[in-house]
């Protein structure tokens, strides 16, 4: 078990280095740069001013040198200073990460709480009305883009029910009621989108497992349907579902960008969008790097969780 975890952890390092390289280069090779952004609108192209600004924001020297400097700063816990706000990137990340984390966690929980029971129900009542309903629902959730659903919720939420999400974001611990009012709609929208995939995966895995001999044996032993489904079938069907849930973390990260913007939630997603528009390299790099690390670590956590669910993984 320990050896398995160590092996998986060792694989993280090259992945993370690869990510830093991609993040750094992708931002550097975008057409235009922050100096263009700062000087272009009012028509300034003074080379001396450009040089001074480049020096100020550490945009001089070879790309390789900039990368090495950036990596060493990261190792020291310094993600740089925002070009547009002059604030340390870590300050913004510390403020905003918990908000996005809360939204993402709520969405994932909603998706799991909806998708797994419905997926199981759909499988055990195959080809029934419930099955058709569940399958239609999952396809519907997958087909409707979250930004469109968000706009509908914003528009019709007010027209039909007079509901608008509060503008002033409040921290969960400071004002749970207001926090819930702001977060619940985007969490439901994001969670619904995620649940489509999980629901379909749960259903197909359950259908497969329910046909296996060991399930038939369990039934033949006289075990109750609930025990057969939960203890025998679901435990064997859950591994691919866990993989999907792990991979959904990246979908959550992407989904929050749009939904935070729509619902005026001051999380990492809205910060990322602003930073991309202003070519604020340090902020973009910091957020993308953080998101990538979260995705990698969550998938690592899923790998570890396999060993708890399926003992065979430990010895593989």
């Amino acid at each position: 078990m320990q050896k398995y975890i160590l092996r998986r952890a060792a694989l993280l390092l090259p992945t993370l280095i690869g990510i830093t390289l991609v993040v750094f280069l992708a931002v550097r090779f975008l057409p235009g740069d922050v100096i263009d952004q700062m000087t272009g609108e009012r028509g300034s192209a003074n080379p001396e001013m450009r040089r001074q600004l480049e020096e100020r924001y550490s945009l001089t020297g070879s790309v390789g040198r900039q990368y090495v400097e950036w990596l060493s700063d990261i190792a020291a816990g310094d993600l740089g200073t925002s070009i547009t706000t002059n604030r340390p990137v870590t300050t913004d990340l510390r403020q905003r990460l918990p908000i996005t984390f809360q939204l993402g966690t709520m969405a994932l929980l909603i998706s799991i709480l909806v998708a797994i029971p419905v997926g199981i129900l759909s499988a055990v009542t195959q080809d029934s009305v419930w099955d058709f309903l569940a399958r239609s629902l999952s396809i519907g959730f997958l087909a409707v883009p979250s930004f469109w659903m968000g706009l509908l919720v914003l528009t019709y939420g007010f027209v039909w029910f007079g509901w608008v999400p509060p503008l002033n974001y409040r921290d969960l611990w400071e004002d749970p009621a207001q926090n819930f009012q702001i977060m619940i709609a985007p969490a439901l929208i994001l969670g619904a989108g995620l649940s489509g995939t999980v629901m379909r995966m749960t259903r197909s895995m359950m259908l497969e497992v329910l046909r296996h001999d060991f399930t038939r044996t369990a039934r033949a032993k006289g075990l109750s349907p609930r025990v057969v489904i939960i203890r025998h079938a679901l435990r064997n069907a859950i591994l691919p579902v866990m993989t999907i849930v792990g991979l959904q973390v990246s979908v959550v990260v992407g989904g929050t960008v749009v939904l935070e913007q729509l619902f005026s939630i001051p999380g990492l997603g809205s910060l990322l969008l602003t930073a991309i528009n202003t070519r604020d390299y340090p902020v973009v790099q910091g957020i993308v790097l953080l998101s990538a690390v979260v995705v990698v670590l969550s998938n690592f956590a899923v790998d570890i969780a396999y060993t708890l669910v399926d003992p065979r993984v430990r010895y593989a």
């Binding site: 706009l151 914003l154 528009t155 608008v164 503008l167 729509l262 619902f263 005026s264």
Partner: peptide, 19 residues
Amino acid sequence: INVVPEYAQRLNNFLAGNL
């Protein structure tokens, strides 16, 4: 001064008396 990027959000909040 609130930064509300989405127009529908701004409009509804104005109509609801929040802006």
